[in-house]
Write a protein that binds this DNA or RNA. Structure first.
Length: 891
DNA sequence: GCGGACTGCTTACCT
DNA sequence: ACAGGTAAGCAGTCCGCG
């Protein structure tokens, strides 16, 4: 039996009695002697030995050979190795709780054309905390298990306890994933092929190394469990990834209409140019000769880039296919929906035989027969990647915006349509796109490739799935693999719902499922010397400390029912450690206590430090999304009680901490979810609070940042802070929002710059004067129409197809409809730029508007609200800035 | 018929 | 197809007003 850390009320007096007074009367607590352990490169090499071998990139099902097959990358040769499970050692299957003898008498099963055999198996049923006997139904092919109306999973009898649900388990797991889990394969990690069998590479890891990492994690409660996962995961975290040989490809297609992108399904127009940027120095641009264009080369063609001209488009395609087939990995930007689709369909249209095309069209993506294909557009679109791995440095998902943000250089801007470009300009343009696509995977010593490999290892997903699917699928896959390793039965969503479909909190926002976090009402005004404390990954900590998991919250044991979760009617298991509690807690501890500190450890060689930094980011993605998935209905382990217990305990933690802070006479001026802002605290009291949290809540509270001053208005999630070095930290203010016109953004940034220079309350007077000038100047420019149209554009994203806006017609939709009427393609994800104009409609797309039409008054009021947010906080009235007298000047 | 109060929709942000 | 909470702007509706 394990004892869960219980949060108990603790008064200030009680708390202080745990500490001693020193000679000067100051309170000090016993400092734990923390031994600093660093794993030197040398130790890692000696104590963690991974057998050499080709790296597993992906596993799929080969419909023709009727077996699983794998693509591996051989670092020695730089080529792909293909492997088939030719002896069909592994077969598709599902499980049922019916006895084998019963299933044997079900004709629809045993006479099914795909039926192979039955096996008796034992599984651990976590939901009911017992071992159960089940029958494994093995079939010849995946579609016989599921995916058709007459698949075996549909033909099994109905579960007597759940209406409309069949007595089939684990039948919805894709076969290629099943193959990975059952054979303990780890995509992204070395493997070996021995006697026709594909196995994960042998790993030799010294127990001392494991012990030392365990010490670093300072974990007592979960020691045994951590030892088990650490042994399996440490090699995945530490084994280097190979530099993979690859080529990025981009194609250009002729289009008779400048703003219409050719339809890749029809592929009506010729491919006029294909560019390859490669890691092995074979960069080449394939160009179609055209009657009206001179076939000459750009003067500034980078060294080593070859250009090949073709008279016949068919030959150009054949050469393209030859190159595509010669790389283990092809990178594109939007290749799934355009480049590869276009090439594929164009080749068919021109009469090339299907077998001569190295491209395969899968259900929802494009792949290569031999190699693998990563569509970086899809990878960078992944919100978890954008936000957690890249700190949101890019907002728009375009090659231009992403490369601008990550590489510091963008696409070549075009003045004329692609079809009209001179050949040399076409070459330059086309090559640049391929080059930056490649560079997106090369910058910072191949950071993106390393990240992808690490994410593959942790999630156990093939490269194609990993780079195309969202974080919930990654976590799903990780959990499924862990279930299989421990022989746990993977529960069906319906039974989870039946057993755990209870909730006990109401959301504040209409339409949401349960209650979330607390936001403390800010104390408006300028506060000097502010320390921000925050819980280091609060929700994952809560999940770990409180043993939260789908099987432990509302567990089946009577004796656990007194182990209550605050603010809910839920209880949590005292007998068994939860699977998600262990995994999420482990990943969190690895990141917070090891990978992140090591990524900043100056004693380590640069390369190793950089590796920890990538690892730290990869873990961050999993950790940060791990709570959310339990509150997402489409997640197969969806469990409301887990999600709402997590936030409930989170609320409890911050509330208790604020209470404690106030008891200590600390001034709490703001807080959001896991942070509290304290004005002018003493170093001791902060330390005291941090120790209190660790001791009483079992959650680490850290100093997150220290501001010279913070300006708060009465608005939540809206503030401006200035660090000691003058850097300004802006949160939520309109001037920072993507859709705010640049005209306002720029003026806003000027004001912010002024505020960064403020060092003391006295400096404010000066700053105010300057701010006044900036805003007046902004006003004046508008009035005099001294602006570019683009500066005034609101840039709002279209989140769904135009015709599905039925309830209301927002302004950006109005503008988008005008664009469509003018013959431009508009689709979900597009950013619509529009300006406000005089007239009944009030808006126009920036492309169609003229300067004279601008509704200046509308913009004046936008300026007002944008600046009010800052001025409010500084205690300045907007009218004070544009006093009646100054307004007179403009009128 | 018009304007203000109100609700709901949509987007972008914060944690 | 991670979550909920907050702000802002606008669209659309209701209601009162002799």
């Amino acid at each position: 039996m394990i004892v869960m850390r219980k949060v108990k009320q603790c008064s200030l007096l009680e708390f202080f009695s745990n500490t001693q007074q020193n000679a000067h009367g100051k309170y000090v607590s016993e400092k734990k002697e923390v031994r600093k352990i660093t794993l030197s490169e040398d130790r890692l090499k000696k104590e963690l030995v991974v057998e050499d071998g080709p790296i597993l990139l992906s596993v799929d099902y080969d419909g023709e050979k009727e077996c699983a097959f794998a693509k591996l990358y051989d670092p020695e040769s730089g080529d792909i190795i293909l492997w088939w499970d030719e002896e069909k050692r592994h077969r598709p299957y599902c499980l049922t709780d019916l006895k084998k003898e019963i299933v044997e008498r079900l004709p629809q099963i045993v006479n099914h054309k795909g039926f192979l055999r039955l096996e008796k198996v034992e599984k651990i049923d976590l939901l009911r905390d017992r071992v159960i006997k089940m029958t494994k139904i093995v079939a010849k092919d995946p579609l016989s298990i599921g995916g058709r109306p007459d698949s075996i999973r549909e033909l099994l009898p109905e579960d007597p306890h759940i209406r409309g649900v069949k007595r089939a388990w684990e039948a919805q797991i894709h076969y290629h994933h099943c193959f990975i889990y059952d054979n303990n394969l780890i995509p992204g990690f070395p493997h070996r092929i021995e006697g026709g069998i594909l196995r994960c590479a042998k790993v030799d890891i010294s127990p001392k190394l494991l012990e030392d990492v365990l010490k670093m994690l300072e974990e007592e409660e979960y020691k045994e469990e951590y030892y088990d996962v650490l042994k399996r995961y440490l090699p995945l975290f530490l084994h280097p990834t190979p530099p993979i040989r690859r080529a990025a490809m981009d194609i250009e297609v002729y289009s008779p209409q400048a703003d219409r992108i050719p339809d890749p399904k029809k592929a009506e127009f010729p491919v006029i140019s294909v560019a390859f940027a490669t890691t092995d120095g074979n960069d080449v641009v394939l160009v179609l000769k055209r009657r009206d264009k001179k076939a000459d080369l750009p003067e500034d063609l980078p060294e080593g880039v070859k250009v090949e001209f073709f008279d016949d488009e068919k030959d150009l395609l054949k050469r393209t296919f030859e190159i595509l087939d010669s790389y283990p990995l092809i990178l594109t930007f939007n290749g799934d929906n355009f480049d590869l689709q276009y090439l594929y369909n164009r080749a068919l249209r021109l009469g090339l035989r299907r077998e001569s095309i190295p491209i395969v069209s899968k259900k929802d993506y494009m792949n290569l027969r031999r190699g693998c294909h990563i569509d970086l557009y899809r990878f960078f679109s992944n919100n978890a990647i954008r936000v957690y791995a890249f700190d949101g440095v890019y907002k728009d998902i375009t090659l231009d915006a992403i490369s601008e943000a990550l590489l510091g250089k963008g696409k070549i801007s075009l003045e004329i349509p692609i079809a009209d470009l001179e050949i040399k300009d076409l070459i330059r343009y086309n090559y640049r796109d391929a080059k930056i696509t490649l560079e997106l995977t090369q910058f910072s010593d191949n950071l993106v490739m390393k990240l992808i490999f690490l994410l593959m290892r942790i999630s156990r997903l093939p490269i194609e799935d990993l780079t195309r699917k969202g974080v919930s699928k990654w976590i799903q896959s990780l959990f499924y693999a862990e279930h299989r390793i421990h022989n746990y039965l993977i529960p069906r969503a319906e039974e989870l719902q039946q057993l755990k479909g209870v909730k006990s909190t109401e959301a504040i926002i209409k339409g949401k499922k349960y209650k979330g976090a607390i936001v403390v009402t800010p104390v408006p005004g300028v506060h000097f010397n502010v320390t921000v404390l925050d819980f280091a990954s609060l929700y994952p900590s809560v999940i770990k400390t409180w043993n939260l998991s789908y099987e432990t919250v509302r567990c089946p044991h009577e004796s656990c029912k007194d182990n209550r979760i605050p603010e809910t009617n839920h209880w949590v298991c005292k007998k068994r450690k939860g699977i998600s509690s262990i995994i999420i807690g482990f990943l969190r501890d690895i990141r917070v206590k090891w990978a992140k500190p090591e990524s900043k450890n100056k004693e380590l060689p640069e390369e190793l430090r950089a590796w920890y930094s990538v690892l730290q980011r990869a873990l961050k993605v999993f950790i940060n999304a791990s709570y959310g998935v339990f509150g997402a209905e489409h997640f197969p382990l969806f469990c409301l009680p887990v999600a709402e217990s997590t936030t409930a305990i989170g609320r409890y933690a911050i509330t208790e901490t604020i209470k404690m802070a106030k008891e200590m006479n600390l001034k709490v001026i703001y807080g959001d979810t896991d942070s509290i802002f304290i004005e002018q605290p003493s170093a001791e009291s902060v330390q005291k609070l941090i120790e209190w949290s660790k001791k009483e809540l079992g959650i680490e509270l850290d100093i997150d940042k220290v501001y010279r001053y913070v300006a708060l208005s009465e608005r939540k999630k809206n503030y401006l802070g200035v660090f000691e070095d003058g850097t300004v930290d802006i949160k939520g203010l309109a001037g920072k929002k993507r859709n705010t016109p640049l005209f306002i953004q720029n003026a806003f940034m000027n004001v912010v710059k002024m505020l960064g220079e403020v060092k003391s309350p006295e400096d404010f007077e000066n700053a105010k004067e300057n701010i006044r000038k900036i805003i007046q100047d902004c006003y004046l420019k508008l009035k005099r129409r001294e602006f570019e149209l683009e500066e005034l554009a609101f840039r709002v994203q279209l989140t769904k197809p135009l015709d599905s806006y039925r309830k209301v017609t927002p302004q950006h939709v109005k503008a988008a409809r005008m664009l469509k009427a003018a013959g431009k393609d508009v689709k979900p994800g597009d950013i619509i730029s529009f300006v406000k104009v005089k007239g009944p409609v009030g808006v126009k797309p920036v492309e169609l508007a003229r300067k004279e039409e601008i509704d200046v008054d509308k913009y004046l009021s936008h300026i007002e609200t944008a600046f009010e947010q800052i001025l409010d906080a500084l205690g300045i009235e907007f009218s004070e800035i544009l006093g009646t007298r100054s307004l007179d000047i403009f009128m």
